[in-house]
């Protein structure tokens, strides 16, 4: 086996490590680093589906939202309070299961549609789930779930505080690494080749032996579960509340699309670079020009996408082809 294939993974983990150290030891930098890492993780999770299949899942945020609900439901259920910190394990598990069930159902139906029709169907799913929760008044309805109290009961006040200020963000780093590992495995196995083939030409891929339906559904499921894990930690554990208006906001899907397109679809380092740039810009513009950040960010993104239609890493990959650096970039 050729070990060089996995070099890009080490590059990604190296970037995470630098970010982590910077955030941990530079005064007041942990929160911005956590924000950047959130965007990186969301981008990577989204890329597993968009990057490999070319399908745009506009309702992506529904899986992040359901993930945070999954965690909130477990933490706030009194029957699990005795687990202590271990409560987070069933929390993540339940988040993954909830997103997984929805993804399996939506995938089975919506993945029969192509292009814009698929995108529209997925927006419908997000809005449908949100209005169902609010309308049927389940899981707290439009008031959501507040877990600050049960979290303190389960973990003790000291640890609960550490979770919201540090461990929730730390787990985002872990999920980003998990997503990066999944991406590199996809890139070098039959599954990934099949997905890329169907992204490029679905009919030709089928005739060549790719079970396109199965492959699309696998990518959709994996990407959705990763989203749920991000939602469970970055939203539920960090903020200790889940409001339907916050966790089903479509703007997060737009963030994810921009990050992946800017960085380079279907590449490992694309969402990392995209998430870094997007997160840093959003943070600094928010400080320098509060209220105007989108006014500057939007044209900037348009320029980047026009200059680098294949994304920054996509262009970089082309430039280094045949050079020594090649094996570090994927």
């Amino acid at each position: 086996m050729n070990k060089g294939k996995y070099y890009p993974l080490f590059v990604a983990i190296g970037i995470f490590l630098v970010l982590f150290i910077f955030g941990k030891f530079a005064q007041g930098m942990w929160e911005p680093v956590a924000l950047i890492m959130f965007y990186v993780a969301v981008g990577e999770a989204f890329n597993v589906f968009l990057g490999f299949t070319g399908y745009v899942n506009f309702g992506y945020v529904v899986f992040m939202g359901l993930g945070s609900y999954g965690m909130a439901l477990v933490v706030s259920s009194s029957s699990m309070a005795g687990l202590g910190p271990w409560i987070l394990i069933p929390g993540f598990l339940f988040a993954a299961i909830m997103a997984g069930i929805l993804a399996a159902g939506v995938g089975a139906i919506a993945l029969r549609l192509r292009g814009a029709y698929f995108a529209i169907a997925t927006i419908g799913v997000n809005q449908g789930v949100k209005f169902f929760i609010e309308g049927a008044k389940i899981w707290g309805g439009s008031e959501g779930i507040i877990i600050s109290k049960p979290l303190k009961v389960a973990l003790g006040p000291h640890l609960a505080n550490a979770v919201t200020t540090f461990w929730a963000d730390f787990l985002v780093f872990m999920i980003a690494i998990l997503a990066a590992v999944i991406t590199i495995v996809f890139l070098h196995t039959r599954l990934g080749y099949g997905l890329i083939a169907l992204r490029e030409d679905e009919d030709a891929a089928r005739v060549m032996g790719v079970n396109t339906t199965k492959y699309k559904n696998i990518a959709f499921l994996v990407s959705s579960i990763l989203a749920a894990l991000v939602g469970a930690t970055a939203w539920c554990l960090k903020t200790t509340y889940v409001f339907p208006d916050d966790v089903f906001a479509l703007s997060y899907t737009v963030d994810a699309i921009v990050i992946v397109m800017m960085g380079g679809t279907g590449t490992l380092l694309g969402p990392v670079v995209g998430g870094l740039i997007y997160g840093i810009l959003k943070y600094w513009l928010g400080i320098l020009l509060p209220g105007f950040q989108l006014l500057i960010l939007a044209p900037f993104i348009i320029i980047i996408i026009i200059l680098f239609p294949e994304g920054i890493v996509g262009v970089l990959k082309k430039r280094v082809r045949g050079k020594k650096l090649e094996k570090f970039i994927a």
Partner: peptide, 13 residues
Amino acid sequence: PFGQITVRENVAI
């Protein structure tokens, strides 16, 4: 062709 990937990868598929 699977346009955005290399010729070698096309044939490997």
